[in-house]
Design a protein around this nucleic acid. Structure first.
Length: 467
RNA sequence: GACCCCAUCGUCUAGAGGCCUAGGACAUCAGCCUUUCACGCUGAAGACACGGGUUCGACUCCCGUUGGGGUCGCCA
C-alpha cells in the first residue's frame, strides 16, 4: 500500500517553525516512499480561522518548497460528512446527546480543579433518557467512550503507549450548533483521505488515544502514528517568540535561505549518522521514521546562522544580489545606479563568503554603495594620519601609471610601492582600505580597487590624500 | 494535581551489550594562513542526570529517583 502523509495546520496564525518541521517530515517521508503528501486546512473553528492565515501557511510552504500533492482539503467544507459519521455512531449507540450547558461544564471543571483532579466529563447524559432533556438547550453529541480496559497505540517514534480507558472521558464530536470538532474531523478526514501515516507533534500524543477509539467505533483502521518531539526554545521551555517561534516568513525576512532552514530543521530531531550538510533531495533519499529522535530539541540560532552562511556561500550570485537589493536600496535611499549594481555583483564572491545572513551581506556590500565624500568609521579615521595621507598621495601617482587595471596589477603596484618605501604591506593597505571604503573591514583591498576602477579609486585616494 | 512522554559535551546529535580512551557539527578558546574582517586549516576544552539491579561485560536492557516536556476546551 502506498504511503499517504498529510500536514494539517489550523489557520489561526502563520506557519510557525514547529509546523514547518512537521510539514517537512511528512513531505520527506512521502517523497522517500514515493507516496503522497497531502495538505488539509483544519478550519472547523470558524471564530479563529482566517483567510490571511491560510495564505500565510500556503506561502510559507511554497517558500520552503514543500509542494503538496492534490488540492488542499478544507476541513470545514466536509462538515456534513463529519456530521454523518457522528449520526452513524449515534445510530449504533456509540454516541449520545448531552444537554449540559457550557456553564455546567465550567462548574465541573472548577470542581475538578479544586479537588486537584483532571477534568473529566462526568457522564451525566451518558445513560440518561432523552425525555429528560431540558427545554431550549441544543445538545452536543458526545462519543460514548469505552470505560473498561485500555487503549494502546503503537507509535513508530515513541513506541507502544497505553492508557487506561478510565482516564479518557466522553469527548464532544458535534457542537451544539452541529459543527464537528477536531477530534471527529481528524478521524473522518484521515480515513477518507486515505492517510496511512500521521506524523505530527508530540502534543497530539494524548489525542491519539481518543482518535483511536473513534476509529475503532467507526470500524476503521487508524493510520500509523508518528509523534515527533517538539521544538523548544534555547532555554528549554516552550518555544516563545523570543526564541524562534516565528512564522517562516520571519526567517525569510531575517535573511535566512529556505534551503538552510530546511537543512537545519531536518537535523532537529532527525539524523542520518554524522551527516550535517545536505539538501532536501538528499534528505528525502535518506529519510526514515526510524531516524527520528524521541526527545525534544532546542532551537539554536547560531547553528542555523552557520548553516545559512554555508548556503549563502553556495548560492548563485544573481540570486543573492536580488535578495540584497531591497536592503541596499533602503540604505542608499533610492534606486541604485547601474554602476553600483555591477560593482556589487562583481564583488559578490568575496562578499558572500563573509556573510551568514542577507542583512550581513547587505552590510558588507555597502562599501560599493556609499558615494563620495565618504564618511569614515571611528577605526578608519584613526588610520588617516598626516603620514598616511602623504603615503596615499604618493601611491596615487604610482597607481595612475598602472596599465591594464585589475586586481593583479593593483596588487603588483602596491607591493612595488611598499618595497620602494621599505614598509610593511599593512602600513599601506590599511590606509588604502580606509580611503576606498571608509571602513577597516572589507574584502581584499586589491579586489575592491579593481572593482571601483582606476578613476574612482584614484578619486577616493586623492580625496583622502589632500584632506 | 492526574495521565502520558522524554533524558549523551553549553546546543544539535552518533551510538541498536563488548567496536567507546564515548565520535561528528555549531558555539567557545588557542595556533596557522593573512593587508583588515571573514573563509579555510590544525589543535584544545567539553557529556553518558543519579541510585539500584540484569550480565563475564552496560551509554546501550529493567526498576526507582530527580529533572524537563506534553495533555487535561462546545481550540486544533
Amino acid at each position: 500500500m502506498s504511503v499517504v502523509t498529510r500536514f494539517a495546520p489550523s489557520p489561526t496564525g502563520f506557519l510557525h517553525i514547529g509546523g514547518a518541521r512537521t510539514a517537512l517530515f511528512n513531505w520527506l517521508y512521502a517523497r522517500h516512499t514515493g507516496g503522497k503528501f497531502l495538505l488539509r486546512i483544519e478550519d472547523t473553528d470558524r471564530k479563529r480561522s482566517t483567510p490571511e492565515a491560510i495564505d500565510a501557511i500556503l506561502a510559507g510552504l511554497e517558500w520552503l518548497g514543500l509542494q503538496w500533492d492534490e488540492e488542499p482539503v478544507y476541513q470545514f467544507s466536509r462538515r456534513d460528512r463529519h456530521a454523518e459519521a457522528a449520526q452513524t455512531l449515534l445510530d449504533k449507540g456509540l454516541a449520545y446527546r448531552c444537554y449540559c450547558t457550557p456553564e455546567e461544564l465550567d462548574a465541573m471543571r472548577e470542581k475538578a480543579k479544586a479537588e486537584k483532579r483532571s477534568m473529566r466529563y462526568d457522564g451525566t447524559w451518558r445513560d440518561r433518557d432523552p425525555s429528560e432533556a431540558p427545554e431550549g438547550v441544543d445538545p452536543v453529541i458526545r462519543f460514548r467512550a469505552p470505560q473498561e480496559g485500555s487503549t494502546v497505540i503503537e507509535d513508530v517514534v515513541q513506541g507502544r503507549v497505553e492508557v487506561a480507558n478510565s482516564e479518557l472521558d466522553d469527548l464532544i464530536m458535534l457542537r451544539a450548533d452541529g459543527t464537528p470538532t477536531y477530534m471527529l474531523s481528524v478521524v473522518v478526514d484521515d480515513h477518507d483521505m486515505g492517510v496511512t501515516h500521521a506524523i505530527r507533534g508530540d502534543d497530539h500524543l494524548t489525542n491519539a488515544f481518543r482518535q483511536t477509539q473513534i476509529f475503532q467505533a467507526l470500524g476503521w483502521e487508524p493510520p500509523v502514528f508518528a509523534h515527533i518531539p517538539l521544538i523548544h526554545g534555547a532555554d528549554g521551555a516552550k518555544l516563545s517568540k523570543r526564541h524562534g517561534a516565528l512564522g517562516v516568513e520571519a526567517y525569510r525576512d531575517m535573511g535566512y535561505l529556505p534551503e538552510a532552514l530546511l537543512n537545519y530543521l531536518c537535523r532537529l530531531g532527525w539524523s542520518h549518522g554524522d551527516d550535517e550538510f545536505f539538501d532536501i533531495q538528499q534528505a528525502a533519499e535518506w529519510f526514515d521514521i526510524s531516524g527520528i529522535n524521541k526527545g525534544a530539541a532546542r532551537f539554536d540560532f547560531d547553528k542555523l546562522a552557520n548553516l545559512n552562511g554555508r548556503y549563502i556561500d553556495a548560492a548563485d550570485n544573481e540570486r543573492l544580489f536580488a535578495l540584497a537589493l531591497p536592503g541596499l536600496e533602503e540604505a542608499a535611499g533610492g534606486a541604485l545606479p547601474e554602476e553600483v549594481k555591477s560593482r556589487v555583483l562583481a564583488g559578490m564572491n568575496s562578499l558572500k563568503s563573509r556573510a551568514d545572513t542577507i542583512p550581513q551581506l547587505v552590510e558588507n556590500a555597502l562599501i560599493y554603495v556609499r558615494s563620495r565624500p565618504l564618511e569614515f568609521t571611528e577605526k578608519a579615521s584613526t588610520l588617516i594620519t598626516p603620514e598616511s595621507r602623504a603615503l596615499l598621495g604618493e601611491l596615487a601617482g604610482d597607481l595612475e601609471a598602472v596599465n591594464d587595471w585589475s586586481e593583479e596589477t593593483v596588487d603588483g603596484a602596491v607591493r612595488a610601492f611598499v618595497e620602494k618605501k621599505d614598509l610593511k604591506l599593512g602600513a599601506v593597505a590599511q590606509p588604502l582600505r580606509a580611503a576606498l571604503t571608509g571602513t577597516t573591514v572589507s574584502p581584499g583591498i586589491f579586489e575592491v580597487a579593481a572593482i571601483f576602477g582606476r578613476e574612482e579609486t584614484l578619486a577616493r585616494v586623492r580625496e583622502v590624500a589632500t584632506g
